[in-house]
């Protein structure tokens, strides 16, 4: 009899543990997925952004452009502006360098200065060549490039943009 009683109690203890674990798992696993959900979401949207007519771009002279994209984060929409320069190297419509105007040092916007024939960053006097190479100043690497671009049939240059 006491043996039986002991077994019954052991059984109850084990069942209690299992049931408690089940409840914990049933709420815990969805909760983890709920918390980590944003990390699982496939990030960045992609799009082809028109930069301008190829005919308007003088060969050898940086053509400034800018565009705004809206990022949807949950219920909030934030628009971010991006800018850059398209530089035609030759008559060949494929021979174009497209630079991001964000300085690689601390993210200020660089401007083209005709006198200097260089991109100057107003923040720490960095200097980049027409190709985006660092000529002077603190930047750790050349200006970023929009490597993917295409020409539409109407002669409009489009760059491939991917949200980070």
């Amino acid at each position: 009899m006491p043996d039986n009683e002991l077994n019954r109690r052991d059984f109850i203890k084990v069942t209690t543990g299992i049931v408690g674990g089940l409840i914990g798992a049933a709420i815990g696993l969805p909760a983890i997925s709920y918390l980590l959900d944003p990390a699982f979401k496939s990030g960045g949207k992609e799009a082809w952004i028109p930069v301008g007519k190829i005919a308007d771009m003088e060969i050898g002279r940086p053509y400034p452009f800018s565009f705004t994209r809206v990022q949807v984060n949950g219920w909030e929409r934030t628009s971010t502006s991006h800018g850059g320069f398209a530089i035609r190297k030759s008559e060949d419509p494929k021979d174009i360098v497209i630079l991001n105007s964000r300085c690689t040092h601390l993210g200020c916007t660089v401007n083209w200065k005709d006198d200097a024939q260089a991109f100057l960053c107003p923040c720490h006097d960095a200097k980049f060549s027409e190709e985006g190479m660092v000529l002077d100043g603190p930047p750790p690497r050349p200006l970023d490039r929009y490597a993917d671009f295409r020409l539409t049939d109407d002669g409009i240059l489009e760059i491939f943009y991917k949200e980070s």
């Binding site: 209690t16 049931v19 408690g20 409840i23």
Partner: peptide, 13 residues
Amino acid sequence: WPDSIFKDLIVSL
């Protein structure tokens, strides 16, 4: 423990 808690747990479940 475990008699009362077992009943409580059944109801909670």
